[in-house]
């Protein structure tokens, strides 16, 4: 499903973010990407979204070589990946319903299908009652749930979450993780970059630990190793 083959990334300012990273994620996996700040988690996510190019190596998503994608193909490629950010990134001038509908309009979904599907998404993330609220009227946890609904509205095979609980208190964070887990149970491959040791340890999912740009540990049913903190 997702493969990084001998991937290295050196930024223009000379900082080596990744060196010779190999990761292989199967369809339907739930993977935690952990490691201290600067370990290379965000760089991997940016590479998967083709926001940046690797200095060397190949990246495959859905068996497609991302590194050779043309500029024009990027939008269509990104529709295969739902993204959740630490800082939510909702459109502040549209209500919850329109924020989710927007993601579907972008990919050309007929409005009839949008009207059918948005309420389903809202009920999945338990926000049916807030459909017409604006983002600034919602709590952080509620906003992140809207982002989740938006990310999976188009049924992408992959969902990437970059520190989705980073701005939330522990209980609310758990709501999000449980939702991610539910989305994964329905067949979506989930990659979650995080610092949250309690969550990683409790979930007992695959854990890939990065340190200074290299994979130092990759375990099924792994835990957050204390020495990397």
């Amino acid at each position: 499903m997702i493969r990084l083959v001998n991937v290295s990334k050196v930024y223009d300012n000379g900082v080596t973010a990744l060196s010779n990273v190999n990761i292989n994620i199967k369809a339907g996996d739930f993977v935690f990407l952990v490691g201290p700040s600067g370990a290379g988690k965000t760089t991997i996510i940016k590479l998967l979204l083709k926001e940046i190019e690797p200095t060397s190596g190949d990246i495959f998503v859905n068996d497609k070589n991302v590194t050779v994608l043309k500029r024009k193909e990027i939008p269509y490629f990104r529709r295969n990946i739902g993204v959740v950010f630490q800082d939510f990134r909702l459109l502040p001038d549209r209500n919850v319903y329109d924020n989710i509908a927007f993601a579907m309009q972008v990919v050309g979904t007929p409005s009839k299908e949008i009207r059918r599907r948005v309420p389903l998404m809202l009920s999945l993330v338990n926000l049916s009652s807030k459909a017409y609220a604006y983002p600034n009227e919602l709590s952080g946890g509620e906003q992140q749930r809207v982002v989740l609904a938006r990310a999976i509205a188009n049924n992408p095979p992959v969902l990437i979450a970059d520190e989705p609980t980073g701005n939330l208190d522990p209980d609310t964070g758990w709501d999000i993780v449980n939702l991610l887990s539910e989305i994964n149970r329905r067949g979506t491959t989930v990659i979650m970059a995080t610092h949250a040791k309690e969550i990683v340890d409790a979930m007992r999912k695959r854990v890939i630990i990065l340190k200074k740009g290299t994979v130092i540990s990759d375990q099924e049913k792994g835990v957050y190793l204390d020495d990397v903190k």
Binding site: L49, Y76, V83, V106, V107, N154
Partner: peptide, 13 residues
């Protein structure tokens, strides 16, 4: 920001 979000969702230019 709005444009940035649209890009992430996969909107064409």
């Amino acid at each position: 920001n709005e444009i940035n979000i649209m890009k992430y969702i996969g909107a064409t230019n």
